[in-house]
Design a protein around this nucleic acid. Structure first.
Lengths: 235, 235
DNA sequence: ATCGTTCATTGATATTTATCAATCTTGATA
DNA sequence: TATCAAGATTGATAAATATCAATGAACGAT
């Protein structure tokens, strides 16, 4: 549990929502009113499936609080993690305008809150407001650029570098702390950075033996961030 | 040279352009007039650099004719191909709305024609026309989704499968023929699918020895598409 | 409490891939 | 034409990674 978790959305007007700034900032009061009426709040427990790969795209999904994984089953039947979505990410974004069905599943990996807005309403707002359309274009670009770049960054590292990369990512980008609970299993880490569970375990143990990190159950503590950084970049 | 290359843009009105349908279809005559005046046509020879990684994003770049590669230098200094852009792809698209600089270089790998439209003009059209904004959202989603999915598909294959995948892609998606000229070097293939030149060469030779393909200089002829397909999916 | 299932861990081994070195080919250029 | 640089190719070897097997630990469901 994260102690700086923001107050949950209690169904109040979207105009008052602390997350409005991300994309909805430019909407008029009237439009915000529409949004408030049309939106839905979904609370999900860790492990809950929000969207299954192949589901029809009907809504615009926004992660308010918590953490989610995007995953897919590849053509040869293997599970593959596409990425980790943090708050303010439009988790259902990539497919929203391009595909009739979701190419990825969306699964909460921590207790989470999702804002759900009918696609039709979003589309209407796009038509009505050029500024909103522009914000959305920005956000979509950002999210997909980030996903792609992360994949590329992972691809040209070998296993130690990948593990260091992902620990660094969780530490800096997600939890903003050197100590955190890994929200996904070793197997899922493997699916995220393309390696086998056994090697995930082995390298984590190696880092532990080298006193770069400590491991207690799911809790990771990065003891030597500089060394981890070095491995991330050169290992 | 491709014998079904469409007539080049002779600076005529964008309203008459055969490629208009992709995104600009919904513009009014007035807006098309604006576009016609504001656009620029860039003819590039094979090898020419259109955009260098790090260049400021000023324009909206659209590949009309030809073929281009998107590439980047990763943090550790290695060249990495992000993808291959085909006609109608918005090659400078990913960064257009999300980053002040281009994260990737854009380089023609065949004689090509690019349409270049000032970012400000595109932005203005987004503000003016909800339909245009919507088309653009669709196109951006499609392009980035395709890039990401291709990367994911490549990631969970081993080397033979990757080579088969990329040959299949060039054959089916790019040239629509079982016989074609490879537009990139062995080294670049390696950079595209994350493997070493030597292994690219070795596996191509292997396919040749197994009579799955024939190689004459840069010309590839796929002799047994079913076998290649099988390797792509199971090899 | 106990069974069973998934996750985590470690070691031994096989397979895949990268690296190194040498040669050959090709294309551009002085 | 001669020369140089880059690309292509092959073989031998080293390094990285996956696979297989076995065991212990954690967690739900009966």
């Amino acid at each position: 549990m994260n102690d700086k978790m923001p107050t949950p959305c209690l169904g109040e007007s979207c105009g008052e929502c602390g997350f409005r700034s991300t994309v909805f900032n430019c909407l008029s009061n009237e439009q915000l009113e529409l949004l408030s009426t049309g939106k839905d709040l979904l609370r999900a427990k860790k492990g809950e499936v929000i969207i299954k790969q192949g589901d029809k795209v009907k809504d615009f999904i926004f992660l308010r609080v918590g953490l989610a994984k995007l995953s897919r089953v590849s053509s040869d039947g293997k599970e593959q993690l596409v990425g980790i979505a943090r708050p303010k990410d439009f988790v259902g974004l990539l497919s929203l305008f391009s595909s009739p069905v979701h190419p990825y599943s969306i699964i909460a990996i921590e207790d989470s809150e999702f804002c759900i807005v009918e696609f039709e309403l979003v589309n209407r707002l796009v038509q009505e407001s050029g500024k909103f359309a522009f914000s959305l274009l920005q956000k979509i670009s950002q999210v997909s650029d980030l996903l792609l770049n992360t994949k590329l960054d992972i691809d040209n590292r070998q296993l130690r570098g990948r593990i260091a990369f992902i620990l660094d990512l969780f530490s800096k980008e997600v939890y903003e702390s050197t100590k955190f609970n890994l929200p996904i299993s070793r197997k899922e880490i493997g699916e995220l950075i393309d390696m086998r569970v056994e090697n995930v375990v082995r390298i984590l143990s190696e880092f532990r033996k080298d006193k770069i990190i400590s491991i207690e159950g799911t809790t990771i503590d990065i003891l030597q961030p500089e060394k981890l950084e070095w491995i991330k970049n050169h290992g």
